[in-house]
């Protein structure tokens, strides 16, 4: 009971809380008890402390509102819808830029020629947690299929895909769209990383990183609020508002994060690809 010695009068005020909770060693408990038997000041202090705690613990349980659970579940449903609508918005805004990218000669033809758009479509089934993130795999000849690991490898946009991991992060792009039955491959959008020369081209303004991060977090946290804000803006203002966000998500290594975000919606998936420029 080293603390005891701090008080020249031998009071045990600093041990009363532990005494109350039974957190003292048997030796300390005996010593504090012995002091309490002789010291009316410490005893009064203990009593007051005990009464205070009793008052606190005597508070009745408030009854939760009966609509709490239903309200939560309803908001979750609405939020899911909002995420789906955000994705639609992304697609809607980005689509013309895909065309622009094609016109700019960013090897978009190579993209579509190398993507496997067979039975499973351009994008893998979103119900598959791995394949939902990355579309169908392009495994070059001679490169062993490393299963899920290779599934995380960026898709090549070039006719002759390089080995796994050979795509620099800066060359990554993100492909956002809906499953084929909802959105045909040709309507998928590709967004490159480079803000000035990417798929969004010069339409993507230079936005401070910190602002982008805040925007991205806000979008993740409350897609409905984001939607409300976007929908208050003119159609022409939407593109520069949204494009940097998606590009930022790639830049921050946020493909997995945006896929968690997308995974809440019905069908959309985000697919990292590489650009061949």
């Amino acid at each position: 009971m080293s603390d005891h010695s701090h008080d020249p009068r031998g009071h045990v005020l600093d041990r009363l809380g532990d005494h109350l909770e039974g957190d003292l060693t048997p030796e300390d408990f005996t010593r504090v008890d012995a002091h309490l038997a002789e010291c009316s000041a410490c005893m009064a202090e203990l009593r007051e402390l005990r009464e205070t705690v009793a008052l606190l613990r005597g508070l009745p349980d408030p009854v939760p509102p009966p609509r709490l659970v239903a309200g939560v579940m309803q908001r979750i449903e609405v939020e899911g819808d909002s995420r789906g609508r955000v994705i639609e918005l992304f697609r809607e805004v980005a689509q013309p830029r895909v065309i622009a990218a094609l016109a700019a000669g960013i090897a978009a033809l190579a993209l579509f020629s190398t993507l496997d758009v067979g039975e499973g479509g351009l994008l893998g089934p979103s119900s598959d947690p791995d394949r939902g993130l990355i579309a169908r795999r392009d495994v070059p000849a001679g490169v062993p299929d490393a299963g899920a690991e290779s599934a995380r490898r960026p898709r090549s946009l070039s006719p002759a895909p390089a080995a796994p991991g050979s795509f620099p992060r800066r060359q990554q792009a993100i492909l956002v769209g809906l499953e084929p039955r909802v959105m045909p491959p040709r309507r998928a959008m590709a967004i490159s990383e480079a803000p000035r020369y990417g798929i969004f081209g010069s339409a993507a303004p230079e936005v401070p990183l910190r602002d982008l991060e805040s925007e991205f977090e806000a979008l993740m946290a409350d897609p409905q609020a984001f939607l409300d804000r976007v929908e208050r803006t003119s159609a022409s203002a939407r593109r520069p508002m949204i494009a940097p966000l998606v590009e930022h998500s790639v830049r921050r290594g946020g493909v997995s994060e945006i896929n968690r975000f997308l995974g809440r919606a019905a069908a959309p998936v985000a697919v990292p690809v590489s650009t061949a420029r």
């Binding site: 809380g17 009064a44 007051e48 402390l49 005990r50 009464e51 205070t52 009793a54 613990r57």
Partner: peptide
């Protein structure tokens, strides 16, 4: 923090504690 909170509460609730009653056992 709990120690400080209890002490502060006790001071704020002076009119309800420290009356010498024995009925506030935990």
């Amino acid at each position: 923090r709990i120690h400080r909170a209890r002490n502060t509460l006790r001071d704020l609730l002076r009119s309800y504690v420290g009356r010498g009653s024995e009925g506030a056992a935990l």
